[in-house]
Amino acid sequence: MGLSEAPHLVGSGVVVTGLSVGFRGTRRALDDVSFAVDGGVVGILGPNGAGKTTLLSVLATALRVPAGQAWVGGHDVGTPSGRRAARGLIGWLPQRFDLAGGMSVQDTVAYAAWSNGADPAQSFVLAQDALALVDLSDRARERVRRLSGGQRQRLGLAAAVAHRPPVLLLDEPSVGLDPQQRLRFRASIRAAASDRIVLLSSHLLEDVAQVCDRVAVMDRGRVLFLGSTAELAALGQSSDGGAGSTEATTPLEAGYLHALEGDTDQAPS
C-alpha cells in the first residue's frame, strides 16, 4: 500500500496522470502531475504556490480537469458523471472553509454528513462518532461561534469524515493552530486515517513526519519527489549539502530541501 508514480490503480484509490491546470495570466498551477495512491496517509509537501491546493481541489471535484486525468475510487473526475460518482467517496477539508456560527456543533456535522450522502436517520450517529473522533463530543451542543480556532479546525475535520469517506483530502489542516492544538489535531488525523486513504497537504514538515507514511514533494506545479518519509529523510542524509541543506535541522528537512532543489532521481519524468 502507498504511493507510486505508476498510475495503474484506477480501480481503487486516487490516480492522477498528466494532470495540468493553468490559471489565466500566470504560470501553470499544476504541470503534468502523475501519481497513484492506494492506501495510507500521504503528505503533499511544498512551499506556498506549489500547487497543493489546486491538486486537492481537482480531486475534490471543486476544480475542473483541463488536461490529463484524475480518478478517485475508479471514477474519472474529469467527467460530470465521474464527478457525481466520486463525490460520495470524498471527504474534503479545504484550507479555508466557512461554518455557520449560529448552528450547533452537532448539527453542523450531522448536516455535513447528510449533504455528503449519508442517510438522514444515520447522520446523527455518524456525527456523534465523528465528534468523538476529533475529541469534540463535550462541545456537541455549543454554537460554532463559541469554538476556538483549533476546535473549529477539528470540527471541520469531523464534518469531512462524518460520512465515512474512503478518501480524505486535507488541505493545510493545521495552519493557524498553536503547538498544543496541532498536537491534538494530528491525533485526530491519525485516528481518522486508520481505515482510509488520506492526502494531506502541508508546508509543515513536522505534520508530515508525525502523521504520514508517504510523501510527495511539489513545487511550481510539479511533483519533485515521491516516496516514503523514510526515503525522503534518507535523501537528506545522503546528500552532500546544497544551499538549503546546510540549514536543515532534521534529515527529513534536509531531504525536503534537497528535493526542492531538484537534485533527486526519484522525481517522476
Partner: peptide, 22 residues
C-alpha cells in the same frame, strides 16, 4: 447562502448531494 457557499462545510462542492439533490 448559509448552506451552499463554495467553502461551506455544510455542503462543499465535493458533497454527494451538491447540485440538484440539495
Amino acid at each position: 447562502g448559509r448552506y451552499l457557499g463554495p467553502r461551506s462545510m455544510l455542503c462543499l462542492p465535493s458533497a454527494a448531494r451538491s447540485g440538484a439533490r440539495i
